[in-house]
């Protein structure tokens, strides 16, 4: 982290916080879709715990974003009243659940980045961000542990489970690159000592996932091409719009109601 601290402008900091909060919002929503439908009871409970953690983290990040923006919006206002083009989550987390293998692979690929990001944020020059990161990293450590175990268990399980995990990896790998690409907002956060340069996290990420893929007998896809447009908001996938019609419907349909 740079030693010369430059105060970020409000807009950049707001963007950054939305990126963190929208990731957990969208992924938490996706994971919560499994409740009542998981392959086995114990897994149903575990996934619900993950979703609950992510929803809790969402409130922390987006409430802080609202405070920074200082326009009277809180976490709920941001979550339930922005449209697709204002969302700042990674493309990876808005991908649909697919089968259980796809869900777990998505979780693993995200958790590995999320934990390293949170670990770095614990050193943030912004005390509030550091505090949120510290609390969240305890939860995400567990998410990563569980996801890793399941990726390995299914990757090196039966022929069918192996095939499904490989398919999931092939499908989701093109969304990994976006996590490590820096843009102007990231550069502002680095200059302010608030957050790490995304590119700096790539090497450790590769080591971690490569090790897991080896044990899971999975083959890492050759191309590292990565789709973009999620965290910048410039181009989300078609999936996000559908998700928001579910998630936001009640608040949009009854705008004068409180719940």
């Amino acid at each position: 982290m740079s030693t010369a601290i430059i105060d970020p402008n409000k807009g950049d900091l707001f963007e950054f916080l939305c990126r963190m909060g929208d990731n957990t919002l969208v992924l938490g929503h996706r994971v919560s879709e499994w409740c009542g439908h998981a392959p086995v009871l114990e897994e149903d409970i575990a996934l619900a715990n993950t979703a609950l953690d992510l929803i809790g983290q969402t409130t922390l990040w987006l409430d802080l974003a609202g405070k920074v923006e200082d326009a009277g919006r809180d976490a709920d206002r941001l979550a339930f009243h922005r449209d697709v083009w204002d969302f700042r989550n990674l493309l990876l987390v808005e991908q649909p659940n697919g089968d259980f293998g796809q869900t777990i692979m998505r979780q693993f690929l995200f958790d590995a980045w999320h934990l390293s990001q949170l670990t770095a944020l614990m050193e943030s020059s912004d005390a509030q961000i550091a505090a949120i990161a510290e609390k969240s990293s305890k939860e995400v450590t567990y998410h990563l542990e569980r996801a890793t175990d399941t990726v390995i268990g299914l990757g090196d399980g039966t022929e069918e489970s192996h095939r499904r995990m490989q398919n999931a990896l092939d499908l989701l790998w093109p969304y990994v690159g976006e996590m490590f690409v820096a843009d102007a907002v990231d550069e502002a956060m680095v200059a302010a000592g608030i957050a790490p340069d995304p590119a700096s996290l790539r090497a450790a990420y590769d080591t971690l996932v490569n090790d897991v893929f080896t044990v899971a007998t999975l083959t890492r896809p050759e191309s590292d091409f990565g789709h973009r447009g999620g965290k910048s908001g410039k181009r989300h996938s078609e999936h996000l719009g559908h998700m928001l019609t579910q998630m936001q419907w009640l608040q949009r349909a009854y705008p004068d109601a409180t719940w």
């Binding site: 114990e42 409970i45 575990a46 715990n49 939860e139 567990y142 569980r146 175990d149 268990g153």
Partner: peptide, 14 residues
């Protein structure tokens, strides 16, 4: 190993 993780999720809510 899995039992421990399941127990953490089922019986302690972390």
């Amino acid at each position: 190993e899995m039992a421990i993780k399941n127990a953490r999720d089922v019986y302690t809510r972390r």
